[in-house]
């Protein structure tokens, strides 16, 4: 593996891996809180927000995108409440209706607007542009030490690395309150843990991960990475600490294996073109979950579920 790998594959691999980690970390807690759908929901809502932010500002830089996504999330919450009350529909269905409707609206908006000069189109929204995140300034492994070449790294890499680092640090710092309030929210409140703020912070963190990852890798990976690696990890162990490590391992494995299979798999099978890396990464994560369901050591529930009183 030489210069070609560094130029063509190194940055997409790194960005895919970082995106997978950023989503899998909060995904562990979302799954244990029975809120796994929130990751799905967020990644859908993000689209119209990003499109509107682009139409207003004309750029795809980070802050307008974040604000647009946040605005869309607020609209989504209001919409869900309205559907629930006016249509007298159960909350789960109201959520499903609101998110798919907003995503569809985002797609329509995207088709109607002129986004030809930026990386923003329907395909990009679904499976990102991982393969196009090429390091033009590189000419081999030596470029990793070359200041000038490093300056030409795709900006998505720095952004994704920063977001992933922040999420990792937040998970470490708030580990105890997160774990306690996820296990026993009532008790957590009595010992002074601000449970509502912790729950809200977790959703916001997931949203930030979704927006950052969406930009580089599209919504398919985001949805898959929130759920598949943590769900597979839960089946590997009965300790939360170990579950987190397993989920990181599965996220990285999905990203690397998926990227390699997308690039070379079709050639090995005698095909001509590579397939979408994002699609393949998500598929690999699904296959890992499937294998875990069949062969992992802790597949059966052992404790009684919580019963609301």
């Amino acid at each position: 593996m030489g210069a070609d790998f560094v130029i063509l594959s190194l940055t997409p691999l790194l960005i895919g891996t970082l995106a997978a980690i950023a989503c899998a970390l909060p995904g562990n807690f979302l799954i244990l809180r029975r809120q796994a759908l929130i990751g799905d929901a967020i990644s859908h809502v993000v689209l119209p927000g990003i499109v509107v932010a682009f139409l207003i500002t004309g750029t795809t830089s980070t802050w307008p995108m974040m604000l647009g996504a946040a605005g869309a999330a607020i609209v989504a919450v209001i919409l869900i409440e309205a559907i629930k009350r006016l249509g007298r529909i159960e909350p789960g269905a109201a959520m499903g209706v609101a998110f798919t409707a907003l995503f569809a609206f985002g797609v329509l908006l995207l088709e109607q607007s002129d986004t030809s000069n930026v990386h923003l189109d329907v395909e990009h929204a679904l499976y990102g542009n991982l393969e196009s995140l090429i390091w033009f300034g590189a000419d081999g492994w030596g470029s990793l030490l070359d200041r000038q070449a490093l300056a030409e790294l795709p900006p998505e890499l720095g952004r994704m690395a920063a977001v992933t680092a922040v999420i990792a640090i937040l998970t470490l710092v708030f580990w105890r309150p997160l774990k306690i309030s996820t296990f026993d929210e009532g008790f957590a409140g009595t010992i002074g843990i601000p449970t509502a703020a912790i729950g809200f912070g977790l959703v916001v963190t997931a949203a930030v991960a979704a927006v950052a990852a969406f930009d580089a890798v599209g919504s398919i990976i985001v949805i898959a990475m929130f759920i598949c690696p943590p769900a597979a990890a839960r089946l590997m162990t009965n300790r939360l600490e170990a579950q987190i490590w397993w989920s990181l391992f599965f996220a990285i494995l999905s990203a690397v294996l998926g990227f390699v299979l997308a690039g070379y798999g079709p050639l090995w099978l005698g095909g001509e073109d590579a397939v979408s890396a994002a699609g393949m990464i998500a598929t690999v994560s699904g296959v890992i979950l499937g294998l875990a369901c069949l062969y992992a050591p802790h597949r059966t529930r052992i404790g009684a579920p919580a019963t609301p009183d």
Partner: peptide, 29 residues
């Protein structure tokens, strides 16, 4: 709390649950 108010399938050990009672001494870090 009532025993049934939590999910006992949560991935943790007995000692970890009991240590939760020390949160006010241990704090975040």
């Amino acid at each position: 709390p009532q025993r049934a108010s939590v999910d006992w399938d949560f991935p943790t050990r007995v000692i970890d649950v009991v240590m939760m009672g020390l949160y006010r001494d241990l704090g975040l870090l």
